[in-house]
Amino acid sequence: MSKALIVGGGIGGLATAVAFTRRGWEVEVLERAERITEVGAGLSLWSNALRALDALGLGEQVRARAIEDGSAGIRDSKGRWLSRTDIETVRARYGSPIVVHRADLLEILRDAVPESALRTGVSVGEVRADGTVVHSAGVSTGDVIVGADGIRSVVRRAVCGEVTPRYSGYTAWRVVVTPAEPMGDLGETWGSGERFGYAALADGRVYCFAAVTAPADRPSAGLAELRDRFGDWHEPIPRLLAAADESAVLHNDIYHLPPLPTYVAGRIALVGDAAHAMTPNLGQGACQALEDAVVLAEVATRDPDLTRYDAERRPRTQMIATRSERIGTVAQLSWAPAVALRNAVMRLLPPSIQIKALAPVLDWTA
Rank of each mutant, 00 (worst) to 15 (best):
L56A: 07
V212P: 01
A216F: 08
D143G: 11
R84K: 15
L290F: 13
L45Y: 04
Q318E: 11
G231V: 13
A214Q: 15
R22Y: 10
A286E: 00
A92D: 12
Y94K: 01
T132Q: 06
E126G: 09
I6W: 02
A357D: 14
T307Q: 13
L257M: 12
R128M: 10
G328N: 08
G42M: 06
A224S: 15
V100K: 01
D305H: 06
V163R: 02
F196T: 02
W364M: 00
D217K: 15
S116R: 14
R91W: 10
A286R: 00
N252L: 12
R313V: 06
D245G: 09
R267M: 05
R110H: 15
G42Y: 03
E291D: 09
L109A: 03
L226K: 01
W173V: 00
L223P: 08
G191K: 07
G59S: 07
V361Y: 00
N281E: 10
D185V: 09
A55V: 05
R63L: 14
I98E: 01
V299I: 12
A265F: 07
S96V: 08
E60P: 06
Y309A: 00
R110V: 09
A72W: 09
T16M: 02
R152I: 03
D305K: 07
S47I: 05
E188F: 01
A244H: 03
P238S: 10
D228R: 15
D253A: 10
V163D: 01
P114W: 07
E225F: 13
V29G: 07
G42S: 10
V155D: 06
I11G: 03
L53S: 04
D185W: 08
A137E: 07
L118C: 11
V127W: 02
I145D: 01
V249I: 11
R152C: 06
H251W: 15
D203K: 09
I108V: 15
R156S: 02
E225I: 14
P360L: 11
S2T: 00
A277K: 03
E26K: 13
R35K: 12
G8H: 05
N252V: 06
T132E: 02
P219K: 12
V155C: 04
V175N: 04
E88W: 05
R65A: 12
V154F: 00
W25D: 04
L201M: 07
A366E: 11
A274K: 08
A72P: 00
V175W: 07
G138C: 10
V39I: 13
T279K: 02
D273N: 14
A211L: 12
E38G: 04
V146A: 06
R119P: 05
A148I: 00
D76K: 10
